[in-house]
Design a protein around this nucleic acid. Structure first.
Lengths: 216, 216
DNA sequence: GGCGAACCGTACCGTACGGTACTGTGAATG
DNA sequence: CATTCACAGTACCGTACGGTACGGTTCGCC
């Protein structure tokens, strides 16, 4: 809550960023239980006292980790050219694959597990942070793409959020949850390409105009 | 894994079921942190020694809680009558609403949070249990419904699991994850009806035969 | 009545963690 | 050289938890 007023990341020093990196690593391959203040201090070669001076307390460290990671994931915008049916589909498939790969990432999974684990006790502060900086950010890219498609007469929808919700569901389904529950994600990564194509194909059948659905 | 050979729940005594009930309650409104052996013993009016005698250790208690809860959710089969386009849609919408309400349930959310929190350390034993007894069980109902729809010439699909995956994604999208992250679920429960109808409508547009899509 | 099994309540133990305080050290500043 | 600052390293404290041991009570059974 002490960082709520900050619109963007609180801009930690390079040293502190190193510490957050170590902490994320620790979290990724040890789970939350392994993320003790002592182990973070040891892994980052800093003192516990410094941790508390920089981040306040353990929860502050967790918040900082989420903010730090979110600041590293840049949502690049790629809607430059004018869209045709083919390029729209191409961009959608690209988006779908990117989305799946982000969700399947080690750090993303670990942070989502962390936030979900804390959701019952801290009033979902971490959860809303993750939601705000994670999905909503990547959703902007999809939203822009969808609206560009509509402006080009290739997509038909009233509510952009509804359309995005459908697209998201078609792409991800319960895959994210299954990975969060521990199902081996390595095995399914190779199918992301096919999965993305099928999802986009279904999405276009639902929201594509007649003009864009002129394919098998 | 020691329960993998057991087709159904290990059949605890009534007393032990009461204890598991208390433990679930405790977990629901306190999160995992509140689920200490001492607090379970206090809430259930039993001794810690009995807990350890009955369930082995804390992890055994957690496994027992999942198995117990799964044994209470009965997946009733409702494919009696012969399907028409209208009744198929009706059954699908019913399934969708049931699914959403199960996922939004207090106990379901708490157990999913618990299993996700443990996924990093215990080799996802709880996660696979939840997956096996939860989604796969409810998936049987949907699978039967889908195949009945195909047999009646109302649905067209090659792979049943693919079709179910699509249906699931259309219904749930990322709603489940958002609820797990702490987003207030009470606010969105009232929209389950509309959400179910829209998802089924989209699903029928994707997988329905010409005969079944003769509606606005 | 005597006996044993099951069990509650509680005290207890070892350990591990969050958080604090203290000492030492190296670098910058004057 | 003296002072100050930032920090590492470590020792320390209080607490809380998982797991165990034990005395006391109830209940069924011979």
């Amino acid at each position: 809550m002490q960082l709520a007023a900050h619109p963007q990341q609180p801009d930690y020093s390079p040293r502190q960023n190193d510490v957050l990196d170590s902490a994320l690593r620790l979290l990724v391959d040890g789970g939350e239980k392994a993320l003790t203040t002592a182990s973070v201090a040891r892994a980052a070669n800093c003192s516990k006292e410094s941790l508390y001076k920089w981040f306040g307390d353990r929860d502050g460290l967790l918040s900082a980790m989420i903010g730090f990671q979110a600041s590293k994931v840049r949502t690049f915008d790629d809607t430059a050219e004018t869209l045709t049916a083919a390029t729209l589909q191409e961009h959608l498939v690209l988006f779908a694959r990117d989305l799946l790969e982000v969700l399947a990432g080690d750090v993303s999974l670990a942070l989502n597990r962390l936030a979900i684990g804390q959701a019952s006790r801290d009033g979902s502060k971490l959860g809303s942070m993750l939601q705000e900086r994670g999905r909503r950010q990547i959703g902007k890219r999809a939203g822009a793409l969808l609206e560009a498609g509509r402006d080009a007469g290739l997509l038909v929808f009233d509510d952009r959020d509804d359309a995005y919700d459908t697209l998201y569901g078609l792409i991800v389904s319960d895959l994210h949850l299954r990975m969060l529950l521990g199902e081996d994600s390595g095995r399914m990564v190779k199918d992301f390409g096919r999965r993305a194509e099928k999802a986009v194909s279904a999405f276009l059948r639902l929201y594509g105009s007649e003009r864009s659905s002129a394919q098998s």
